[in-house]
Amino acid sequence: MERFTATHHALLFAWISRAVVQAVGEKDGERIVRKGVVKYALQRGKRMALRAKANGHELTMDNYIAYVEWKSQKGEMEQKILARNPHARINVFRCPWHTAWKENDLMSYGRYFCIEVDKALVKGFNEELQIDINGTQPNDAKFCDLIFKDANLTPCNMMKLIYKKVINPGKNAIMPWEYHSGHLYKTMGEVIRDELGEEAEEIMSVSLRDFTDKYGKEAGQILIDYESTDFNRLP
Rank of each mutant, 00 (worst) to 15 (best):
V21F: 10
V37D: 08
E202V: 04
I16R: 02
L50A: 11
M107S: 13
I133D: 04
K74E: 15
L184V: 02
T212L: 09
K102S: 15
W15Q: 13
R84D: 07
I147G: 08
Q137I: 09
L161Y: 13
R34P: 00
A6Y: 12
E69Y: 01
E116N: 10
T229W: 07
L184F: 10
V166T: 15
G135R: 05
D105R: 13
K149P: 02
F113I: 02
Q22R: 08
G197L: 02
D213E: 13
Q73M: 05
K27L: 03
E190I: 07
F4N: 01
A120S: 06
A66T: 07
W177P: 06
A23I: 00
K214V: 09
R31A: 14
H183N: 09
T5L: 15
D225W: 02
R84S: 12
W15E: 15
V166Q: 11
G189K: 09
W97G: 01
G25Q: 05
K214C: 01
D28L: 15
M204R: 05
S205I: 00
K186N: 05
G56I: 00
P176A: 10
L82E: 12
T212I: 12
N91W: 15
W97Q: 02
E199G: 07
S72E: 05
E178G: 04
G189E: 08
N55G: 08
G220T: 08
L129I: 01
V206S: 13
Y40C: 00
N232E: 14
A173V: 06
Y112F: 15
N104L: 07
K186G: 04
E190N: 15
N55F: 08
F4T: 00
T7D: 06
L50P: 04
N104V: 04
D150F: 04
N91Q: 08
I131C: 02
L50H: 09
K53Y: 00
Q73W: 00
T60I: 05
Y67C: 11
W15T: 10
V20R: 11
L161K: 03
L82Q: 08
M77H: 05
I90V: 15
A10W: 02
V92T: 13
I222V: 15
K165Q: 09
F148E: 03
K46Q: 12
E103S: 11
M159E: 05
I162H: 04
E195N: 07
I203Q: 08
P155R: 11
